[in-house]
């Protein structure tokens, strides 16, 4: 089991957002987590990645059998967790090249590997850039500074490709993308799918799931996963909307 979340409760500023999330993800799987706005999808992603503003009040998260909640953010990343941000922050003056090289070598060091040589690193950059059709000059720019919405998201997937995470969580990667950018981003993600890694796609639209086809779809509602099904569940949600779930919950 790659990721095991048991009865996870989390709050921010005293307000409970996650109220008992249970989730299991195996290597090789693609999960989609859907749900209306404000139900805790992004919070779940943030808690897995280790954002400290959220306080975990109960439950546990195991990653490869290790207690994830005890690890600092960067250690989680080095263990192979990647968060594709919904709103990537701008870091003026820090070039993507410098940023990625530092990140990659830190991860390698953690796993007892030698740092990549400059040449090898650049070769890898070139290779991964193609994956998301990034124009070469993008990499000389500062991290996310002055990027369009689409560029920011492509840059997130590019970084994912560079770091080869075992578990990637893509938080609303589809928001703000036109159809071409969406296709490019999805193609990039699909190319990174393998039997050894897993991807959690967070979205509230079916649209993205036409491109990244999930194995399992969950509906997160009011801080809990209330429904789990196959990819057809996403289509059902698209057709019926979320009210249907709400009614079903009420009648329960």
């Amino acid at each position: 089991m790659l990721l095991q979340i048991k009865n996870l409760h989390a709050q921010i500023n005293g307000k409970e957002i996650l109220r008992g999330v249970n989730l299991e993800v195996k290597a090789g799987e693609v999960h989609a987590i859907m749900g209306p706005n404000g139900t805790g999808k992004s919070t779940l992603a943030s808690v897995i990645a280790g954002r400290e503003v959220f306080e975990v009040t109960a439950g546990e998260v195991l990653y490869n059998g290790k207690n994830l909640l005890e690890m600092p953010v960067e250690q989680r990343a080095r263990e192979g967790i990647f968060l594709g941000f919904q709103y990537p922050v701008e870091i003026p003056g820090v070039s993507i090249t410098n940023f990625m090289r530092t990140a990659l070598n830190e991860v390698r060091k953690y796993h007892g590997q030698e740092p990549l040589s400059g040449a090898a690193f650049l070769a890898r950059m070139e290779e991964k850039k193609k994956l998301v059709e990034i124009q070469s000059k993008l990499t000389n720019r500062s991290v996310n500074e002055g990027f369009s919405g689409g560029e920011k998201k492509k840059n997130e997937i590019f970084q994912m490709a560079m770091l080869e995470p075992q578990l990637a969580i893509l938080d609303e990667t589809d928001s703000g993308l036109d159809i071409d950018a969406l296709r490019i981003v999805a193609n990039g993600v699909n190319a990174l799918r393998s039997k050894d890694n897993a991807i959690i796609v967070i979205t509230h639209y079916q649209r993205l799931l036409d491109y990244i086809v999930p194995d399992i779809v969950h509906v997160l509602f009011d801080g809990k996963i209330v429904k789990t099904g196959g990819k057809e569940l996403a289509l059902e949600l698209e057709g019926k909307g979320y009210d249907w779930i709400r009614k079903e919950l009420e009648t329960r």
Partner: peptide, 13 residues
């Protein structure tokens, strides 16, 4: 946010 972003990519503080 900047710090968290870097840390999330595996770079220590």
């Amino acid at each position: 946010d900047q710090l968290f972003y870097c840390q999330q990519r595996g770079i220590d503080a």
